[in-house]
């Protein structure tokens, strides 16, 4: 699993000309585990996901729900070959939950910039979450946010609406 096997762990070498299909598969498996294992830093980052989630949870007793990804312009481009060039380096994402939409536009190229609009417009607090935790927290009376200098990687937006009793919405994790 760790892929840390030493060369001494490798099965005895059979001349390639004598390899059966299954022997070739076994040998290829050993080679993959030895030379392309899951990186240690990734292993550590994923093991910390539950702890980071608990530490970063700021729902304040409100119910937290996922605003699910319902539209991704990159997915749209799959069916409409050539359309992507029209939008240039801009990706549009829509997330929805309970009649609330979070519309996002990400402009790529080096560090990303992001425009986010809560629909219907209303006062909201937005947290930008990266793999390492909450990176920014902003507040706007109309639920409109503009961020620049975002690094590529996993991203989720957590949106707390001012309306009484409204759930805290966390968008589906996406890679930007």
């Amino acid at each position: 699993m760790t892929g840390e096997a030493s060369e001494q762990d490798v099965a005895p070498i059979i001349p390639i000309s004598a390899l059966t299909r299954e022997a070739a598969f076994r040998r290829f498996s050993e080679i993959v585990r030895r030379s392309d294992p899951v990186p240690a830093e990734l292993r550590e980052a994923i093991s910390k996901i539950p702890a980071r989630h608990r530490a970063g949870s700021t729902s304040g007793g409100r119910e937290e729900r996922e605003a699910e990804l319902v539209y991704d312009s990159d997915e749209d481009g799959e069916a409409l070959v050539g359309v992507r060039s029209i939008s240039g380096g801009t990706r549009r994402l829509s997330f929805e939950s309970d009649g609330i939409a979070i519309e996002v536009e990400i402009t790529s190229g080096g560090k990303r910039s992001l425009v986010c609009q809560v629909v219907p417009a209303q006062p909201a607090v937005l947290e930008v979450r990266a793999a390492a935790g909450v990176s920014r927290r902003l507040e706007d009376v109309k639920g409109t946010f503009h961020l620049t200098g975002l690094r590529s990687g996993p991203l989720s937006l957590r949106c707390r609406l001012e309306a009484s009793g409204a759930p805290v919405l966390s968008t589906t994790w996406v890679r930007i």
Partner: peptide, 8 residues
């Protein structure tokens, strides 16, 4: 990045 996004 992809793996982290999927696990998250």
């Amino acid at each position: 990045d992809v793996a982290q996004t999927v696990w998250l």
